[in-house]
Amino acid sequence: MSEVALKLRPQIQNLRQLKKNKAAMIGLIIILFFVFTAIFAPFIAPHDPYEQNLEKALLLPCKEYPMGTDELGRCIMSRIIFGTRISLQIGIIVTGITACTGVLLGMIAGYYGGILDEIIMRIVDILLAFPGLVLALAIAGLLGPGLFNVMLALTIVGWMGYARVVRGSVLSVKEKEFVETARALGAGDIYILFRHILPNVMAPVIVMATLGMGYVILAAAGLSFLGLGAQPPTPVWGAMLNNGRAFMRTAPHLTAFPGLAIMITVLAFNLLGDGLRDIFDPRLKEKKIE
């Protein structure tokens, strides 16, 4: 009963529990910090991220350039700060679209079953048979470089997990008596799906989306490292890594700082995601109660 009770009041109960989870709170704070950075990038960045100054190329971190400069004399810190925008943008948009697509298709498959279920889930199986990043690379390669194409590629390879999880949850929730009650009171399928079933299957989706955000940012960095994605001179973390590769021995700060930025962001999303999973997972909760 207590397990059910805890699950029922998502907003308040979960916030309270989240505050107790230190790792998740650290993750949340880091994410908020990055969001803040992205929004106020022009005010925070010490220099123009595009401004070249060949006289000051490859400077080590100093007072004027806290993270040094790259081979064209651009301020690395400013470029990382502006890069936050693109990374978060990709993360949020791709995760948002994949989650919505996956949830929608998963709900249709789980609720209606039959031939629709069969078609959707076989497509999922087929797409899951390819390694995600390789497939994304192939799609992005086919479509050509560019930010939009990378996001499209990551969307195509990212929605299946959500569809599977949601379908499974819907299969169990649709047998619940309150769904029957809603039907007995004249509710239609669409109404039942969105009003009664959707809120009950959101918990795992939120966890997946949080963890997925880190994965998408990492994958996007990987693709832009390979030259796909936003093109120079746009500041992108992955591309900055690739740029600095040539100077790794002489000027390691060119790769170290963008690498750190990627690592910290992904870590933050994973910490938060793990924390949320602990909160939403009823089995883990029961253990705590005992």
Binding site: V4, K7, L8, P10, K176, E177, F178, E180, T181, A182, R183, A184, L185, G186, A187, G188, R195, H196, P199, N200
Partner: peptide, 24 residues
């Protein structure tokens, strides 16, 4: 029949603890 349900003939379900949506 969907329009009849609830408006003309309503069902009061068996199990009060599981027949209400827990998240609404």
């Amino acid at each position: 029949i969907r329009r009849l349900r609830g408006k003309e003939v309503a069902l009061i379900p068996q199990n009060p603890s599981t027949s209400l949506n827990p998240v609404l």
